[in-house]
Write a protein that binds this DNA or RNA. Structure first.
Length: 454
DNA sequence: TCGGGCGTTATAGCGATACA
DNA sequence: TGTATCGCTATAACGCCCGA
């Protein structure tokens, strides 16, 4: 332990370099022991730094490849990086992450009233998850495009006294942008920043700046696919699915606050470097996800990679009243190799026809849904649900429009066999009773029953 | 003319899920 | 671990159509 103590004190005091990547250092690497020191069993950073002795922002900046900003106790550290257009982020290049059609962001996030460039992507690392005055953002990361390259800036808090200056600096950056973009920022990042601004009795600049939160559009577009068996749609899951990004030695979120507290106690910035890299990865992925979403709403069905993406885009466009482009997506999805995709697409098409009172076209689509879904007796529960919907819709069609009571009864029976909810069963039983009553009246009056459908 | 049925829309409640 | 947001589901209300 005494070795560790002297090492930590050496880091906090002297010019001897320790771990932590510099400007060109390999990011995200594991923490390394100081030169000529035995490797510690565990990378523990106990509160050995003499209390009351502030962390030197200049030394932290040197270790992290940044620069100190501000004077005295109000100084914080700024770390800048520039990712050139040909740099790769998984399978995509930075040049492909630019967002030209920012006006289309309102299709992704309907809560955005006005769309304006330039976009400022931002992401916080905080001392905790829960709100309240005790949680603060010790790292504010932001990024924007400049001449095709992604410019990143990170503001690191080296002492609580510098928070106001750090926030003011970020506020200047926000004032220069047209729109903020975040991932779950509407729920987490923005409220936390606003709370901190209130704490310093300053006006929060975020409230007046349009803010697009990419979490919810990402869920709408990729949840059913990106998403692992657990159905997650975190930024890390998404970047792996969309861009093939595999993070190496990424710091888990729950570990971030404790690493920062270790830094405050020890003065050693080494535990922070993986956090800065984690934050940079989040910012690049956020830009890439935004660009991908904008490309989809701009390019439509032709831009989609597969049928699942077509279905999701169709639903998103339908939600915005763009029925024509939604139908194009659903129509293209009916040619997908996946039966589940084809069934879902046909059900969407049928529902759209029904809404537009094109009942013959709707019945034709429902018929295809039922035929396709029925081939799969023990398949996807969603497909089975659509088979039941199709059977009931066709029963309605035959009872009230085609006037084929026998076919309606047969379809109602099939729907009943697929029904799982008590209410649904009751509703279908009622329908069957009505049909049989009508058929009894018809037979008494001497009418011939219409032939059954295939 | 009236009642039954269909289809759409609005609303409420609940559960899932991002974030560090 | 707390919190806000959204999607899903159930339900109600409403307008429309049609047959008795």
């Amino acid at each position: 332990m005494s070795d560790l103590v002297s090492r930590l004190r050496g880091i906090a005091r002297g010019p001897g370099r320790t771990s932590g990547a510099g400007p060109s250092g390999a990011p995200g690497g594991p923490e390394r022991p100081a030169p000529q020191q035995p490797a510690p069993r565990e990378p523990t950073y106990e509160p050995e730094r003499p209390s009351g002795q502030p962390v030197d922002p200049g030394r932290v900046a040197d270790a992290l490849g940044g620069e100190p900003l501000g004077e005295g106790r109000a100084a914080f550290v700024r770390v800048r990086r520039r990712y050139e257009p040909d740099r790769r982020h998984g399978e995509v290049r930075i040049s492909a992450c630019g967002c030209d059609r920012v006006d289309l962001i309102r299709l992704l996030d309907p809560s955005v009233d006005t769309c304006a460039a330039p976009l400022l992507f931002f992401d916080l690392e905080t001392t905790g998850l829960s709100g309240g005055a005790g949680t603060l953002a010790f790292l504010v990361g932001c990024a924007w495009f400049e001449d095709g390259a992604l410019q990143l800036e990170q503001y690191l808090l080296t002492s609580y006294a510098a928070e106001r200056a750090l926030l003011a600096h970020f506020a200047e950056r926000v004032a220069a942008c047209g729109m903020l973009v975040s991932y779950n920022g509407r729920t987490f990042d923005a409220p936390l920043l606003e709370m901190r601004w209130q704490f310093h009795r300053s006006r929060a600049p975020i409230g007046g700046t349009p803010h697009a939160d990419m979490l919810h559009p990402a869920r709408r577009l990729w949840r059913t696919r990106a998403c692992d068996p657990d159905g997650g749609c975190s930024l890390a899951t998404l970047e792996r699915f969309l861009f093939g990004v595999e993070r190496v030695n990424d710091v888990p979120g729950f570990e971030i606050p404790s690493r920062y507290f270790r830094f405050l106690r020890s003065g050693d910035p080494a535990p922070l470097e993986p956090i800065l890299e984690h934050n940079r990865m989040d910012l690049v992925s956020l830009a890439a996800v935004t660009a991908r979403g904008l490309a989809l709403v701009d390019g439509g069905s032709a831009e989609c990679r597969d049928g699942w993406e077509r279905l999701a885009l169709g639903r998103l466009l339908e939600r915005h009243g763009d029925a024509a482009r939604a139908m194009e997506c659903f129509g293209d999805a009916t040619n997908d190799p996946s039966r589940d995709v084809r069934v879902e697409a046909l059900a969407r098409i049928a529902a759209r026809h029904r809404r537009a009172r094109r009942h013959a076209e709707a019945a034709d689509a429902w018929q295809q849904v039922f035929a396709l879904a029925h081939e799969e007796q023990h398949g996807n529960p969603r497909t089975q649900l659509l088979a039941r919907d199709a059977a009931e819709a066709l029963a309605v069609h035959h009872e009230h429009r085609a006037r084929n009571l026998a076919a309606a009864r047969e379809l109602a029976r099939k729907a009943l066999a697929l029904e799982r909810s008590r209410r649904g069963v009751e509703s279908l039983q009622y329908r069957l009773q009505r049909l049989e009553r009508k058929m009894g009246v018809q037979q008494k009056s001497g009418d011939d029953a219409a032939p059954l459908l295939d």
